[in-house]
Amino acid sequence: MRGAMSKKPDDASRVAGLASILKATNAKPDSPLSPAPLPPAAAPESNAVELTPRKRKEKVGKYRDPDFKITSTYLRKTTMKRARRKWEDLQPEKDFSDLLQMLLEQWLEAN
């Protein structure tokens, strides 16, 4: 029975073989397997402006906004399909929930 943690006898020879392959490819600069030589680093200019990463404008969706709550309703498929298509044609930049919000607010004001 072999020990669970013992190495195989050929592991050392595999590592030695890989090391010799790496040495051989690094010794031949014209070899297709060797990496291309790096260009010399440019000297820093004295008047160079240090670039800082731009701050991204944090995009907050309705799912993170505490003023919004996820709800579900039962609507007929055909009604929903027609309403979504018409809303996307009229207001492509707005979400369907914007339409429902507007209609509910109008209904509340009227009643």
Rank of each mutant, 00 (worst) to 15 (best):
L99G: 00
L108P: 00
D89R: 10
Y63G: 10
E105Y: 01
K8A: 12
K59F: 08
D67K: 09
L75V: 15
R84K: 14
G61K: 12
F68E: 04
S13T: 08
I70V: 09
A43Y: 07
D10E: 12
G17K: 14
P39W: 07
D11M: 15
A83F: 05
E45D: 10
M102H: 09
R82I: 00
T52L: 11
A110G: 07
K94D: 03
Q101K: 03
S6I: 05
K28I: 06
K28S: 07
K23A: 08
E109D: 11
L38N: 14
R76H: 13
M5P: 02
E105T: 13
M1Y: 08
D65M: 03
A12M: 05
F68I: 01
E58K: 13
D30N: 08
T73A: 15
I70L: 13
D10V: 02
A110T: 10
T52A: 06
K77Q: 11
N111F: 03
A48H: 13
L104A: 12
N111W: 00
L22I: 08
R64D: 12
K8G: 05
K55E: 08
D30I: 02
L90M: 11
A110Y: 03
P35I: 02
W107D: 08
K7N: 10
L51W: 08
N47Y: 04
R14C: 04
N26K: 10
M80D: 15
M102R: 15
A83V: 14
P40I: 03
P32S: 02
S46V: 09
M102V: 06
A41W: 04
L75Y: 03
A27T: 02
G61P: 01
M80G: 08
S20Q: 11
E58I: 11
K62C: 06
D65W: 10
K57E: 04
F96V: 02
D11E: 12
M80F: 07
T79L: 14
D11H: 11
L22R: 12
Y63C: 09
K59M: 08
L108N: 06
N111K: 14
K8E: 06
D11P: 00
D65A: 05
D89M: 10
W107A: 14
L99V: 01
N47V: 07
Y74D: 06
M102L: 15
P35W: 06
L22W: 04
N111G: 12
Y63A: 11
S46K: 09
K7H: 07
A41R: 11
E109A: 12
R84L: 12
L104Y: 03
R82V: 00
P9M: 00
L104T: 13
Q91M: 14
L100M: 09
E88P: 01
F96W: 13
P35D: 09
R56P: 03
D89E: 14
T78V: 14
L90K: 09
L22F: 05
K28D: 15
D65T: 00
A43E: 07
M1E: 02
K55G: 07
L22T: 10
A41T: 12
R64V: 06
P39N: 07
P92S: 01
E93N: 08
A12P: 01
L38H: 06
Q91F: 09
R2A: 08
D11I: 15
